[in-house]
Design a protein around this nucleic acid. Structure first.
Lengths: 195, 195
DNA sequence: TCTGGAATTGAACGAACGTTCAAGATATAT
DNA sequence: ATATATCTTGAACGTTCGTTCAATTCCAGA
């Protein structure tokens, strides 16, 4: 019965994500959002409830993007370690030109928001945790293939990787020379704690 | 001749820094600031020119704080490497309870701001660079004392350290278990690229 | 073809934003 | 004691904020 919504929810969330990713939560206004997703306030509030609602949907979409990309690299690589290395290079190096921000949107959110926004904060934190868990799974696979020593704790290595990525991405934002970054990533998996 | 300003500029900047450090640039309003530093708009604008002016002064004050702390650890340690390790532990572990935010204010700023605020961004970036340069100096000292191999590039190690700190601090914000962090910091200087 | 219900629109709301400035207060020099 | 240069105050400015909602548009089912 009656009318069907005419906007494409997936596309709307994509556009919202790109805007929030670039500008961050506080610097993005509802009017910026209205322009970016081409919806009027009434429709936005009917669909998402609030500015926070759109942001939450964006965070979740962003996390899915990352997990999907990781999965994509996994199935297209023979080696789990190579998949991880490609992922790191992609987010640290390639994202500088191709993405709304060279920062990880989740890290950016965790850095920006305070406990005034507990729900958004917790969405970002647990999304980071899921990515870390996927890293750990890939490391388990790597151990099965003897690419990583079996005495290593996968969760520990995954945490290490997460920390490297965050540090590298922030650093990438402060510098315009990618040379050192490439080199650091190449060496990442060749030394402690990986080897 | 005539009247002297009655507010304590140093104290005002300290309070402003703590507020901006906690909430970030965009989430801090001039009215928040007025309360935190106990000044009325007229006086603030006479002294700092704008919200950006206060923020810039805060960034510079924050950077000086960090450099001073590093210097303090240097003169009170026999070993440069120990000074660096203490610094890392202080900013990553201790800052969680004692500071307005467990994030580095400079990294937080670099992550939050876009090129819409080129001057503030560049202040934050170059402050990060000065800290990195101080790290490098300490590493040169460490090399003289044979605590670090002389074949290593001090600037490279300094960059590595900067990246570790940033990564660790963001991670600290996502997790409430400091155990892994302590361990990672302890191991930081015992492996590649330091050894 | 008509109609009922859902989706869309955009003007409008009160609040808060960064900033200005005239009026008042105050310390110094004479 | 008075004059004056400077600092302080806080009301007010125009703008933008997140959000609401009555009016309108639109389409599926009869």
């Amino acid at each position: 019965m009656s009318k069907k919504a005419k906007f494409d929810r997936q596309l709307v969330i994509e556009n919202a994500t790109n805007l929030y990713w670039e500008k961050g939560y506080h610097a993005t206004s509802m009017r910026n959002l209205q322009d970016a997703i081409d919806m009027r306030p009434g429709s936005i509030y009917a669909e998402f409830g609030s500015k926070d609602g759109v942001f939450k949907a964006s965070l979740e979409h962003y996390a899915q993007l990352g997990l999907a990309e990781l999965e994509n690299l996994r199935v297209h690589s023979t080696s789990p370690v190579e998949a991880l290395k490609s992922f790191v290079k992609q987010v640290v190096i390639d994202s500088q030109d191709e993405s709304p921000s060279c920062m990880c949107m989740l890290a950016k959110t965790v850095a920006e928001l305070t406990d005034d926004q507990p729900e958004l904060l917790s969405v970002a934190k647990s999304a980071l945790k899921s990515v870390e868990d996927q890293f750990a799974q890939l490391i388990v696979e790597a151990q099965k293939k003897e690419e990583v020593g079996k005495s290593k704790d996968p969760q520990e290595l995954a945490r290490f990787l997460q920390i490297q990525i965050t540090g590298l991405r922030v650093y990438a934002r402060t510098s315009d020379d990618n040379g050192p970054l490439e080199k650091m990533i190449d060496e990442l998996f060749d030394h402690h704690p990986f080897q």
